[in-house]
Amino acid sequence: MAALWSRKREAAADEALIRSLYEEHGRALLAYATRLTGDRAAAEDVVQETLVRAWRHPDSLVNGKGSVRGWLLTVARNIVTDRYRAKASRPQEVAESPATPPVQRDHAESVVDSVVVLEALDQLSSDHRDVLVEIYFRGRSVTEAAQALGVPPGTVKSRSHYALRALRETFSGQHVALKGVAG
């Protein structure tokens, strides 16, 4: 029966959507939520809720990888903030303790910024992005980054320069292709 067949297909599509989000963004989401909540079990709940919300709002997932991830991180952060607020307003709960680091409560602005940054990074060439990830986000030295990326140290240095320049071009709204300059 067509309706039944269609429902089965919908179910398969649901599963594929959840799996692909999980495979691509699960690690970032869980690590982020774990840091915000300080608790792996709580963080897993947050990630589950985040993925379910993404499934409920598939129209928010139509753009590039960067903005999808930005959206997911934003949702995760909002969930943590809401739950944290709920907890804080319960009378028997003590306020903030070192075990449960406080969440910045009015976070709308910084989350918007991280979406913008992710989108900008998305527009860089992979050579440029990789070098920023190694050096800036993983805190690697030029030598370590060169080994990880399989390029000479001199290339890592010049690429990190052009990567920051390309980022700047992206922000100034002139999408100048600096890809050819990547040394």
Binding site: R27, A28, L30, A31, Y32, V47, S114, L118
Partner: peptide, 8 residues
Amino acid sequence: EAMLDGPP
């Protein structure tokens, strides 16, 4: 964490 890739 935003730059981590893959499944957890």
